[in-house]
Simulated scan of single mutants.
Amino acid sequence: MVGGMLRCRLLGHRFHFSHEGCTLLWSCLRDCGASDHKRYPTAEEAERYARAFDRRDIDSLGRHAPLFGLYPLRLWRAWRDRRSTRPLAG
């Protein structure tokens, strides 16, 4: 538990979202003990929020980067994608 608390202090929590009926639940995957819940009017609404909040956007990082701020990341990703689809010489 202490290791999880230290990681969360340094890197921030890594929450996992789920639902049980009308209740949205979340807890930290790093076992620091952080968790909570929120009740919604319908189970469908709780499920929709759980699905939306539990998405990981790491795979799409740099794919739709802003024109200036993350432009180098966009260039690197385009170069990497182009390189991985090119046939090997030999």
Rank of each mutant, 00 (worst) to 15 (best):
M1D: 15
V2K: 15
V2W: 14
G3D: 15
G3Y: 12
G4L: 02
M5D: 10
M5A: 14
M5N: 09
L6S: 04
L6H: 01
R7H: 07
C8G: 01
R9D: 03
R9T: 04
L10A: 12
L11S: 08
L11I: 01
L11W: 08
R14Y: 11
R14F: 09
H16T: 15
S18G: 13
H19S: 15
E20R: 15
G21C: 02
C22G: 03
C22M: 09
T23M: 07
T23E: 13
L24H: 00
L24A: 03
L24R: 00
L25F: 12
L25C: 14
S27F: 08
S27E: 07
S27G: 06
S27A: 11
C28N: 04
R30N: 13
R30C: 12
D31H: 11
C32P: 02
G33R: 02
G33E: 02
A34P: 03
A34L: 10
A34N: 14
A34K: 11
S35D: 08
H37Y: 12
K38G: 04
R39P: 05
R39H: 11
Y40W: 10
Y40T: 06
Y40V: 03
Y40K: 06
P41G: 05
P41V: 04
T42S: 14
T42W: 09
E44G: 13
E45T: 03
A46T: 02
A46S: 10
E47A: 09
E47G: 05
R48E: 06
R48Y: 07
Y49L: 15
Y49I: 08
R51K: 13
R51T: 09
R51F: 05
A52D: 13
A52L: 10
A52H: 10
A52Q: 12
F53G: 03
F53R: 07
D54W: 03
D54K: 04
D54S: 05
D54N: 12
D54M: 01
R55Y: 00
R55T: 03
R56H: 07
R56Y: 05
D57P: 10
I58M: 11
I58E: 13
D59L: 13
S60W: 09
L61D: 13
G62E: 04
H64A: 14
H64G: 12
A65Y: 02
A65W: 01
P66L: 01
P66S: 01
L67W: 08
L67Y: 11
F68M: 14
G69C: 12
L70V: 06
L70T: 02
Y71L: 12
R74G: 08
R74P: 02
R74K: 14
L75P: 01
L75K: 10
L75S: 04
R77N: 09
A78C: 08
A78I: 06
A78R: 14
R80F: 07
D81Q: 15
D81N: 14
R82V: 02
R82G: 13
R83Q: 06
R86P: 07
L88A: 04
L88F: 01
L88I: 04
L88C: 04
A89M: 14
A89V: 14
A89P: 11
A89F: 09
A89L: 15
G90P: 06
